[in-house]
């Protein structure tokens, strides 16, 4: 009796709620922890990045216009679906990163819990960082945060927890994003995209590109329709500086490279970095 032949998964990009191959037709080899062949991943091009930005921009109005409560529910739904597929993620983490089963479980637990944490923030952040301003005059005056718009994210290594830690705060607050997944470990990112695609998250809110950071990131950093860029996953200081310089062209909000302890409870800065404060005045009179 011959062994059953495995059905191997094709890892593609995630743009506008769809899973296209790179328009360039390119792919690259993703190795497992021992250096063996694990899978082919799509190698995104600048045109894929452009399409992803376009998708993120068209999703922004609808997503930012939803109630914060609803956004929180959608992010929580991602956590639910992730929980239901946790075995698959643990397996992927073990094979791609070579971590122990216990460690894989810790990372998956933390990723799920992080999503729940940010889901809860969606309808609270405005109360914590906004408020009434007691101006010296007959005016109602208040400040509230609003999402900056389309955010480009260079995701850190740590394909699941790292990705969740940078994406969840951005979308919980109403931004949409284009993420370049960890270059050596892109597969979990695409599997997470599959989770998002089945979690009530509207197409275009999160777009995932896999491929060369050095190749794609400059196009996002210089893109005039991108409002902010998160350089967390950039390891090369020269690249970091170049990207920040390019981002200055349209005054993008920039989170500089560097990663906090992902297992610790986060601060608010991953949300506030990509929030604008809007202050509204109105006279009070008869």
């Amino acid at each position: 009796m011959s062994a059953r032949l495995d059905v191997k998964k094709t890892y593609k990009l995630y743009i506008d709620g769809e899973f296209p191959r790179s328009e360039s037709g390119r792919s690259y080899v993703v190795a497992d922890a021992k250096g063996g062949f694990l899978a082919n991943a799509s190698q995104a091009s600048r045109k894929d990045a452009r399409d992803a930005v376009r998708a993120a921009r068209s999703a922004f109005g609808g997503w930012s216009g939803r109630t914060a409560y609803n956004r929180g529910q959608v992010v929580y739904r991602i956590a639910e679906v992730l929980e239901s597929r946790r075995d698959q993620f643990e397996a992927e983490l073990r094979s791609s990163e070579g971590v122990t089963p216990a460690k894989a479980r810790t990372f998956v637990d933390a990723a799920i819990d992080r999503l729940v944490w940010y889901a809860g923030w969606a309808d609270k952040i405005a109360q914590v960082v906004g408020g009434a301003n007691p101006v010296a005059g007959p005016y109602f005056n208040h400040s509230a945060p609003e999402p900056s718009g389309v955010i480009a994210i260079i995701a850190p290594a740590g394909p699941l927890l790292g990705l969740v830690s940078v994406v969840a705060p951005v979308i919980a607050c109403g931004n949409t994003c284009v993420v370049i997944a960890s270059e050596p470990h892109p597969l979990t990112a695409i599997t997470l995209a599959e989770v998002m695609a089945t979690s009530d998250l509207p197409g275009g809110v999160v777009n995932v590109l896999t491929g060369s950071v050095a190749e794609i990131a400059p196009w996002l950093a210089s893109h005039s329709d991108v409002n902010g860029i998160d350089l967390t996953g950039v390891n090369d200081p020269d690249l970091g500086r170049t990207l920040e310089e390019a981002a200055a062209e349209n005054l993008k909000r920039v989170r500089r490279p560097g990663l906090e302890d992902l297992l610790a409870t986060p601060a608010l800065d991953r949300m506030t970095k990509f929030l604008e404060t809007k202050t509204v005045w109105h006279p009070m009179g008869l």
């Binding site: 010296a136 404060t277 809007k278």
Partner: peptide, 27 residues
């Protein structure tokens, strides 16, 4: 998409009121 919205008034300033821009108006 603006950092300060004046409704039925304009160009009011107060030290208690945050001021600043969206997009290319700065951060």
């Amino acid at each position: 998409r603006a950092g300060v919205v004046w409704s039925n008034t304009f160009n009011r300033f107060d030290p208690a009121s945050p001021f600043g821009g969206y997009k290319e108006s700065g951060y």
